[in-house]
Design a protein around this nucleic acid. Sequence first.
DNA 1: CCATGAAATGAGAGTAACTCTCAAAAGATG
DNA 2: CATCTTTTGAGAGTTACTCTCATTTCATGG
Lengths: 220, 220
Amino acid sequence: MRDMAATAQTSAPAAEPQPGLRERKKIKTRIAIREATYRLIERQGYDATTIEQIAEAAEVSPSTVFRYFPTKEDIVLTDEYDPLLEQELRERPADEPWFDSLRHVLRKAVGIDTSEDPEVSRLRTRLMVEVPAVRSRMMESMSVTGRLLSRAIAERSGRDPDSLEVRVFAMSLIGGLMETSLYWAETGQGDDLADLVERAVNVMEHGLVPRNPEDRGAPA
Amino acid sequence: MRDMAATAQTSAPAAEPQPGLRERKKIKTRIAIREATYRLIERQGYDATTIEQIAEAAEVSPSTVFRYFPTKEDIVLTDEYDPLLEQELRERPADEPWFDSLRHVLRKAVGIDTSEDPEVSRLRTRLMVEVPAVRSRMMESMSVTGRLLSRAIAERSGRDPDSLEVRVFAMSLIGGLMETSLYWAETGQGDDLADLVERAVNVMEHGLVPRNPEDRGAPA
DNA sequence: CCATGAAATGAGAGTAACTCTCAAAAGATG
DNA sequence: CATCTTTTGAGAGTTACTCTCATTTCATGG
C-alpha cells in the first residue's frame, strides 16, 4: 500500500481546448476502470473482486489498472471534492462567521454528492463501513482535507496554519464529519445527510448542549 | 508491554493465580515477537522488515506470528490503553465538568505512555507519520476509542451513546487528539506531549479563541 | 505522408502479506 | 502413563502491488 498523489499530473501546461487524443483516451480508460469496478463490486462484493477481473472487464491489462490507481481502494474512492471545497470556502465573505461558512460549503458538497450519482455515492459509503481498507483510505484522504481546512482557517484568522491550535481545530471538525458519514451509512442511509451534517456542525460549534438548562455549559 | 489481555480469550474461567505453563508461554511469545519487530524495524526500517525475518528473530514460525497478530501493523501498535482509559474515566467524580475529566485522564495516559517505555513510544509515533499503513491502523483503533468516549459521555449526560450528537462530539475529540499526536511526531517529539494535549483540549473546549477580544466567539 | 521521438500499454517475473489445511509437538488431566 | 486439547510448524495458495522491457500508439516536424 504505497501512497502517492491521488490525481495524475501531466507535465504539459494545463488547459488545452482540444486535449488531444491521448488525454481523451486516458480519461476514458480511467472511467472504464471505475465503472467496471463498481459493477463488479455491486455484483460480487469488494473482496471477491480482483484486479484481474477489473482489468478484464475494463478491457485493459492489470498493469494499466495499477498505473491509473495506486491501490484497489483508490478505485472506489478518490472523487476529489477538495479543490471544489477550497474554492467554495474562499468565495465566502471573509467576515462571515466560520461555522456559517462551513455550513454553506458542506450543504453544497452534500448536495452535489447525493445528486450527481446517488447509487455510486451510496455504494461508496456502504463500502466505507463494510470494508476496513476502504474506511482507512477514506480517513487518510479526510486528513488531507483537514490540512485544507487548516489553511482556510489560518487565512481567515491570521494564524499559522501549521500551529497546533489550528490543526487540532481543523481535525476535530474532520473527525466529526467523518463520524457523520459513518452514522449515515450505518443507519442505512435513510436520513437526509444534509440534516445530519447540520446537526453535527451544531454540536461542533456549541458542544453538547445540556438537556437541563440549569446544567453548566459543559456536556456532562 | 503489559498488554496480554489483548484479543484472544480462553473459554476457561478468567483469573487464575497460576495461569499455567501454556498461558505463560503465550505471553512470552507475544512479547518476543513484539521486541524482535521493534529491534528489526529500528535497524532496517518498517518496509524492509518482513514477517519472515520477524519470525526468525523471535524464533517462531511465520504462521505463529500471524496467529498472534492479524497484521504487521498490529505488531507495532496495539497497546490497548482503552480499558485503562475507561476505568480512569469512570473513577472521576460524576459532577466534574467533562473537559476537566478528560484533561485528568489524558494527563495520566500521557504520563504512562512516555514514562513506561520511551523508546518504543517514540518509535511508534515516528512510524505513525512515516508509514501510511501504520497511521491508518492507528486511526482505526482511535475510532474504537471514540466509541468508548461515546459511552462515557452518554453515561454522564444521560444521552444515547449511539445518537449522532454524542458520536460526533466524541469523534471530534478523537480527531483533535489524533492530530496532536501527529503534530508531536512531526515536530520531532521535542515538545512536552502533555502540554500539547492541554492546548489541544483547550481548543476543543473553547474553540479557536480570537486574537482580538472584540471579535465574536467564532474562530474566524 | 513519412520519420523520429515520446508516451502509454502489455506481458511477465518477482515480492510479501496474508489464508487454509493438516500433521506433529507440547501442555493439561485423570 | 494414556488420552484429550491446544498450539505450533510446514507448505501450498491467493492476491495486491512493483519493476522491467519490448511493443504499440499518439504527437510532431519536415
